[in-house]
Structure formats: structure tokens, C-alpha cells
Amino acid sequence: MSSTQEHQEHLWGPVRWAENGAVRLAFDSLVEGADGEPLLMATGLGANRFWIPDGLCRLLAAQGFAVARYDQRDGGESTHLPPTATRNPLSALFAKREEAYTAEDMADDTIAVMDALGWRSAHLLGVSLGGAVAQRVALRHPGRVRTLTTMAAVPGDVSGLRTMRYIRMSTLAKFARVRFPDTPDGAVAAGVAVSRLVASPNRPFDEQAAREAAERNADRGIHDQDAQSRQIGAQWHGPPISAVTRPTLVLHGADDPLIKPSAGKAIASRIAHARLVLLPRVGHEFPECAWHSVATEIRDLANSER
């Protein structure tokens, strides 16, 4: 048994499964705070649920939340779809149509997980691609969303060329060049490389800590360009984010090297009464220095919904 599995048995409940048509979605729940208010987390492009720091999840539990997290389709232990013609995230970003599934399908995955958890409604926290997914859930299923927190994300209603204004294309190109062998060692090397790419340039990069984290979570999804292409190519056909009616918090790293802070500002300006918080010395990541602020802000947002 791996150290990650051993740790999960103590801090997290067993992996469970939700179904949305032919897609099976892996999820688990934090043991601490299980009687709190439901809070579901959605992760970023290619990343599995283990990228969300346990320390942040425990702080959220201490703030009164029952925390659950899931692997998006084409990520982690969830269903991976067959290959498509577009097999590079950069080209998938500018494809004229999706080939595998839609953004609506991914939003409905979130609801399937909530159903499997027995949650009629929940607070949502989406990070990066997960932030865009969470925005779309709030548009497509507003009655199921208590509050919406979107972090390090682009507006959920933009696609193709309109996305370019928010993405640092040089960093995305570096991601596209992250190629390592499809082995456990390759996944660890990719994890360190990705951690370096997303880190704030205004904090020293702790390579040893990044390597230890990657060894605990050798996630092949972060360099699976086929799967990432399908995720990034899923296009939204619904209303604009200005139609979001749920209480909304927009978090963004002030030093984000992948998604410009202007993306967070755009989201906050277009959703009525949304609160924008720029996190100092934070990149496209969840560093420990930001955990307390993130947990406190989400708690304050939930209090406003009551």
C-alpha cells in the first residue's frame, strides 16, 4: 500500500463512484467535519483530486464544512474517454467544436457527484478549469449551488480566441512541452516540473517539497495531453456568467503565471455582487501561506448566504 493510500484511509473516506451516463466519477469525503455544510471541490486541467492540499481541506472542515472532492472526467480515477483527432491542449483551445463532450456534460458530472453524496445543494469551490466548471454549474443548476467560489479561473463563458486575453500563452506553451515517460518516475518528474511552472515567482521554489508531494501523488494526468485536450476542448453553449445569481467569491493569485489576474477581475465584474480577492505571493497554486485566507473567505461567503 502506498503512503498516499495509507494517509487517505485515515483522513479521507474510501473512494466512491458517481455516474453520469457512461462516465464514472471518483470522489471521496474528508472524515473530519462530516456533519458540516456540504462543500464540493473541482480540480484543474488534467489534475486529480489529490492536488488539493489536505491542510486546506482540514481548515475548511474546522470552519464548519463537510468537504468532498472529485476527479473530473479524463482525470484521476474517473473515466478516460477515447482519443480524438485533437491531441494537443493548445490546438484544442482553438478548435471550432468539441470532439468528445461538452462543458455542459462536465457541469452535469458535478451534479452526479452531489447526487451520489446525497447532497441536495452544496457550496462549490472550483480551481483553474474546475473554476470554469463551477461557474457553469451555477448557471445550469442554480438551485443546487449554495455559494460559488472560483479560483485561478477564466470566465466560464469564454472559449477559443476570446480565451487568449486571459492566458499567458508562453506558460501554456511550456505546459505543452512537459513530456516525460508514462511511468511512475515520469509522473514524479512531471509533477515537479508543473509545480515549478505554476509557483509564484515571488516565493522561493522548494524543489524538495515539490518532489516529495509528487512522490506521494504520481499523477500521470498532468502530462496526459490527450486527456487535457478533451477537457479544454469542451465548449459551453449556455448563458453568460452575468446570469449567475448565487453568492460568488473570486480568488486569484496575484502572481499567477498561467491565468492573468485580469481573468478574476473580469469574472467579478460580470457577476452581480461578486467579491474579488487577489492573493499576494500566490501563483497558480494552493500554497500554505494562503490556506487561512482562502478558508476564511469561503466561510464568510457561506455566512452571507444564510
Results as ranks from 00 to 15, higher is better:
34 A>Y: 03
235 Q>W: 06
253 G>W: 12
15 V>G: 07
13 G>Y: 04
250 V>R: 04
177 R>Q: 15
151 M>R: 08
159 S>D: 10
186 G>M: 14
22 A>F: 11
44 G>M: 02
145 V>C: 00
124 L>Q: 09
141 H>P: 03
62 A>T: 10
9 E>H: 05
25 L>D: 05
52 I>M: 13
155 P>N: 02
274 A>T: 03
240 P>D: 10
251 L>T: 09
268 A>Y: 08
158 V>A: 10
214 A>S: 15
163 T>A: 12
278 L>I: 11
93 L>I: 07
137 V>M: 11
264 G>M: 01
34 A>K: 05
268 A>E: 02
5 Q>T: 15
7 H>L: 14
178 V>R: 08
285 E>P: 01
119 W>A: 11
109 D>K: 00
195 S>F: 02
15 V>K: 06
250 V>Y: 08
295 A>G: 06
212 E>P: 00
130 G>I: 00
111 I>W: 00
250 V>A: 08
161 L>Q: 14
19 E>V: 10
126 G>K: 11
98 E>M: 07
130 G>N: 01
186 G>Q: 13
205 F>M: 12
306 R>D: 13
98 E>G: 14
133 V>P: 06
45 L>T: 15
261 P>T: 08
64 G>A: 08
217 N>A: 04
192 V>I: 11
44 G>I: 10
142 P>S: 02
37 E>D: 14
163 T>R: 14
244 V>P: 09
5 Q>W: 09
69 R>F: 05
173 A>T: 14
209 A>Q: 12
104 E>T: 04
297 E>S: 13
221 G>V: 07
141 H>Q: 01
134 A>E: 14
196 R>W: 06
302 A>N: 03
190 A>M: 01
35 D>G: 01
20 N>R: 07
86 T>P: 03
106 M>I: 14
99 E>Y: 11
21 G>M: 04
68 A>E: 02
123 H>M: 07
112 A>G: 08
175 F>A: 10
149 T>I: 02
189 A>G: 07
226 D>Q: 15
232 I>R: 11
189 A>R: 15
149 T>V: 11
87 R>N: 15
13 G>I: 00
258 L>P: 02
101 Y>Q: 03
275 R>S: 09
276 L>R: 01
281 R>W: 01
60 L>Q: 13
215 E>D: 09
78 S>V: 11
102 T>A: 13
152 A>E: 03
290 A>S: 14
174 K>C: 12
177 R>G: 13
44 G>E: 12
145 V>F: 02
64 G>Q: 07
72 Q>Y: 04
73 R>K: 05
